[in-house]
Design a protein around this nucleic acid. Structure first.
Lengths: 218, 218
DNA sequence: CGAGGTTTCCGTACTCAGTCCATAATGAGT
DNA sequence: ACTCATTATGGACTGAGTACGGAAACCTCG
C-alpha cells in the first residue's frame, strides 16, 4: 500500500481491491523497470510505449492500465512523495497559525522525499519537447498539491478570510516550493538538502501571507 | 508589429521580414477566425486542425506555419498582453524598491489586458482533457513571464542576493498573479476588474519577499 | 528582362500517443 | 458449476505533430 492511488493513473495501486476479479500481474514494477532501462539507453523521447511494453513482456494496452500517460513515468518518485501529503496535513499541529502551518507541511513534505530521487528527464540530455512534456506533467502534480494545500488552509483559517486569498497563498507557496525543488534537482551531484532549499523559498511567501491568513478578526 | 514574436509560434508576426521571399498571405487572422468559429460551434476538443485549415481555405501545413500547436489558439489574447511585458519592465520607475517594482510591473501588465478577453476554453463546457491541455499550454506562458520577471529582478537587486531567492520571488509572484487572473476569468459575467484581483493576490507575496530582495546590505 | 535566392504554400507520407471495443483469462463468492 | 468483477490483450482507429519535396510568389542584382 506504499503507493496509494496515483494521479491520472487508472487506479494503479492495488490498495482497494474490493474482491474478486482477475489479480493484477506484477506488471507495474516490470513496466517501470523496463522504462527506466530504455530511458537510460535511448532517452525518453526516442523510447516508444511499444518498446516499453514489449520489453516488459506485456501488451501495449496493459501499459495504459497502469499509467495514464507516458509522462507519468517521469514523476514516479515525486508521486510517491506527494502521496504522503494527506497524512502530513492530518498530522500538522493545531497550535500553529495558518501561515506557519502552511510552511510546516510543505517543509515536512520535502523532508519525506528520498535524497537520491531526481527525475530522469533532468539527469539526462533530452530534446526540448521532452522537457516541456516533463513540465506539463509536473503541472498536474503542482495543481494537485496546491489544491490540497488550499483545502487544508481553508479549514484552518477564519471564515471571513477571502477564499481567493487562500488559494493565492496556497499556489504561491507551492510555486515557491517547486522553485526550490527545481533548483535542488538541477544542482550538480553535490546538491545540498532538499528541505533547506524548499524552506528558504517558501518562508518569505508564508511570512507575506501571515497578515492575510492569521486571525484577521479576534 | 502589435503582435511581436509569439511563443512557440514559428515567428508568426511579420515583424522582422529581412527581405525577399514570398509574402505571407493574410492567413493568420483567417486561421484565428476560422478556429474561433469552430470552437464556438463544436468546442475545442471536437475541432481538428484539418477543419480549421479547410475553413480558412488553407493547407494543413500552413497552420503550423503560424502556430506551433493547436493549444496556442487558446492563449491568443493572453499572448497579446504578455508581449507587452518587456516594454513595461523597461518603463518601471527606478526609485522603487525591488519588491515594490515587482508588484508594480505585474499590476501594470494586468491593467494592459482587454477587459473582455477571457480564454475560450473557460467560457465553454469542455472535456477534462481539453482543460488540461489548456493549462499545459498556459504553463509555457507562465514560465516565460516568470523568467522575464526574474531577469528584471536580478537586474534591480543587490549582487549579494541569492539567485534562487530571486527566482522564488518571481515564480511565487507570477503564481499568485495567475491565481488572481484565473479567479477573475472563472468569475461570472459580472466579473470585477482584473487589476484588483491580481493586485490583491500579488501584494502579500511581494511584501513577504521584501526583506529578502530590498537592499539587504547598505 | 532574366538569374539566383529566399520565403511561403501545399500535398503526401509518416510516427506515435492515446482511445475504443470486443474478447479471453483469472479469480472470488454462492 | 455458475455468476460476477476485474484484468490482460489484440486490433483498429483518431488526430497532433514532423519531415520532405516541390511549386509559387516576391525580392535584388546583374
Amino acid at each position: 500500500m506504499t503507493e496509494s492511488d496515483r494521479l491520472g493513473t487508472a487506479s494503479g495501486g492495488a490498495g482497494t481491491r474490493s474482491r474478486g476479479g482477475r489479480p493484477r500481474a506484477s506488471s507495474r514494477r516490470t513496466l517501470e523497470d523496463a522504462a527506466s532501462e530504455l530511458f537510460l539507453e535511448q532517452g525518453y523521447a526516442r523510447t516508444t510505449i511499444d518498446q516499453i511494453a514489449q520489453r516488459a513482456g506485456v501488451g501495449r494496452n496493459t501499459f495504459f492500465n497502469y499509467f495514464a500517460a507516458k509522462s507519468d513515468l517521469l514523476w514516479l518518485d515525486a508521486d510517491e512523495t506527494i502521496s504522503a501529503l494527506p497524512e502530513i496535513l492530518g498530522a500538522a499541529p493545531h497550535d500553529l497559525a495558518p501561515s506557519s502551518a502552511l510552511e510546516h507541511v510543505i517543509v515536512a513534505l520535502a523532508a519525506r522525499h528520498p535524497h537520491r530521487a531526481v527525475p530522469i528527464a533532468l539527469s539526462q540530455r533530452e530534446p526540448m519537447a521532452t522537457h516541456e512534456e516533463f513540465l506539463a506533467a509536473g503541472l498536474a502534480r503542482f495543481l494537485l498539491v496546491a489544491r490540497e494545500l488550499a483545502d487544508f488552509l481553508r479549514r484552518r483559517v477564519d471564515d471571513d478570510v477571502d477564499a481567493n486569498s487562500v488559494r493565492a497563498a496556497a499556489n504561491a507557496a507551492a510555486a515557491a516550493a517547486a522553485t526550490g525543488a527545481g533548483a535542488w534537482a538541477l544542482a550538480g551531484v553535490e546538491r545540498g538538502d532538499l528541505t533547506v532549499a524548499v524552506a528558504a523559498a517558501v518562508a518569505p511567501v508564508c511570512r507575506g501571507f501571515a497578515p492575510v491568513l492569521d486571525r484577521p478578526g479576534r
